[in-house]
Simulated assay, not measured.
Amino acid sequence: MSERRNDQNHGDNDNQAVLNEIVRNTEMGKNSLDQLIDVTDDRQLKASLLAQQQEYRRINQQAHAAMAALGEQSHGQSPAVKLMAKMGIWTETLADRSTRNLADMVIQGANQGVMDCEKARKDHPAASTGALGLLNELQQFEERTARQMRDFL
């Protein structure tokens, strides 16, 4: 019986870790896009970024709801990470606000998100099919985002 309980606790911990990664990943995406949307004057790029931001919000809300169902709260991004990301974007766009540069930044971010999803999947194999399904959804969205942004290069 205690072995089963340990398996259950491990699964819950893996669920929590995967869902926290989804929250962190989607927060980074939402916050970064917020900054980039304000920087660009390209209407097509702006429309694409707004659509991406909506998808990040949707997945983020699902992850928060799943965390609440576990009786947990997500940790999200730390203030230091948020500030570093904001400063990095500010620095990258200070001299070059071109559509190409902004698209390149989104591609880099989406590719990092894909890698973070892969790491979460491998680090937390006992996560539920629901948590892993949402992680897969996020990863596929980020892969599509990177492909779509290539049109703006």
Rank of each mutant, 00 (worst) to 15 (best):
Arg43Tyr: 08
Asn101Val: 01
Gly11Tyr: 02
Ser32Lys: 04
Gly130Glu: 14
Gln54Ile: 06
Leu132His: 14
Ala146Ser: 15
Ala68Glu: 08
Arg147Leu: 10
Leu33Pro: 01
Asp7Trp: 11
Asp7Thr: 15
Ser48Gln: 13
Gln108Glu: 13
Glu27Arg: 06
Asp116Trp: 15
Lys82Ser: 10
Gln108His: 10
Gln62Leu: 04
His124Tyr: 10
Arg5Asp: 14
Met105Asn: 06
Leu132Met: 09
Gln8Thr: 14
His75Thr: 09
Gln54Val: 08
Gly130Val: 11
Arg5Tyr: 03
Ile59Val: 09
Gln139Lys: 15
Thr26Ile: 00
Gln77Val: 07
His10Trp: 08
Arg147Ile: 06
Cys117Tyr: 04
Leu36Arg: 10
Thr26His: 02
Ala63Gly: 00
Asp96Arg: 00
Leu45Ser: 02
Gly88Thr: 09
Ile107Arg: 15
Arg24His: 12
Gln77Trp: 01
Asn20Arg: 01
Asn20Ile: 06
Gln8Trp: 15
Gly88Lys: 12
Met105Leu: 14
Leu132Ala: 07
Ala17Leu: 08
Gln54Cys: 09
Ala126Cys: 05
Asn6Asp: 13
Gln35Gly: 11
Met105Glu: 11
Asn20Trp: 02
Lys46Tyr: 01
Ser78Asn: 04
Tyr56His: 15
Leu70Cys: 00
Val114Lys: 04
Gln108Cys: 04
Lys46Trp: 01
Leu70Trp: 02
Gly76Cys: 03
Gln108Ser: 11
Ile89Cys: 05
Gly113Leu: 00
Leu50Ile: 11
Gln44Cys: 01
Gly71Ile: 01
Leu132Tyr: 05
Asp7Glu: 15
Leu36Gly: 13
Glu92Cys: 05
Ile107Asn: 05
Thr145Glu: 02
Gly71Val: 01
Leu83Glu: 08
Lys119Ile: 09
His64Met: 08
Gln35His: 10
